[in-house]
Amino acid sequence: MSDERVPKRGRPTAHERTLRRERILDAAVSAFAARGFGGTSLDDVAAASGVTKRTLYVDVGDKGALFTAAVEREHDRIRAVTLRSPHALLSAATEIVHVLHSDRAVALHRAVIADAPGFPELAERFYETGPGHSIAVLERALSDQTRAHDRATALYSLLLGERHRRRLLGLDPAPTRAQAAHHAAASLALLGLPLDDRSPEPMARGF
């Protein structure tokens, strides 16, 4: 019988850790959507993502940190656009509509609304890492900083508004990027804010 042994696997690479974290967050969003924040356990998320609870703690943290990380991941997509083109207001507005009306973002929004009375700190963290972050992104993208916060808040309200309410109620599907761009451009026009040099595609029916 050979004395050779199977060598122990080394530490996961940075890429493997990133993929594992994405898998954990995907499982968390699915769990929060199905059972809410209060009804979701770390054991549920660990089992669904194929990791141990210890790994989940090391990679992300407790359940509150897991929810916050899932919310932050959606807003990182918005942040990435503004980092590439920090003063392109239409780009930022389009990405906000496209991301925040997505199935994943809507699932998280529903979960926090349902559990906000019992978990007020969760609701506060959600606002800071969600709406608060998006308003700050729009504020930085405004070329004219006069009353920038007030105008960014008004724009954010238009970018979500009734269309987002219909998404929360499950009445409309998530918008395509072309639909998101059209809605963003229309919202900017209502507030008299300038577009950048790109024109959105025509909006399809249904959004």
Rank of each mutant, 00 (worst) to 15 (best):
A93F: 08
A93Q: 12
A93S: 15
T94A: 13
T94W: 03
E95D: 14
I96E: 07
I96D: 11
I96H: 10
I96W: 12
V97N: 07
H98Q: 14
L100I: 06
H101I: 08
H101P: 06
S102K: 03
S102L: 03
S102Q: 05
R104L: 01
R104N: 07
R104S: 06
A105F: 00
A105L: 00
V106W: 00
V106R: 01
L108F: 03
L108Y: 05
H109W: 08
R110T: 10
R110M: 01
R110L: 00
A111Y: 04
V112E: 01
V112C: 10
V112L: 03
V112M: 03
A114N: 06
D115G: 11
D115V: 08
A116L: 05
A116F: 04
A116R: 00
P117S: 10
G118C: 00
G118R: 00
G118N: 06
F119D: 02
P120N: 05
E121R: 02
L122N: 05
L122T: 06
A123F: 03
A123V: 12
E124Q: 06
R125M: 09
R125N: 13
R125A: 11
R125G: 14
F126K: 08
F126S: 11
F126H: 13
F126D: 15
Y127A: 11
E128F: 04
T129H: 06
P131L: 09
P131N: 11
P131T: 13
G132D: 08
H133V: 08
H133Q: 13
S134L: 10
S134H: 09
I135A: 09
I135Q: 13
I135E: 01
A136Y: 10
A136Q: 14
V137M: 06
L138K: 12
L138W: 14
L138E: 12
L138G: 13
L138C: 14
E139M: 10
E139G: 10
E139P: 05
E139D: 13
E139T: 14
R140Q: 14
R140F: 10
S143R: 11
Q145E: 03
Q145Y: 00
Q145W: 02
Q145S: 11
Q145N: 12
Q145R: 09
T146Y: 01
T146R: 03
T146L: 00
R147H: 04
R147K: 04
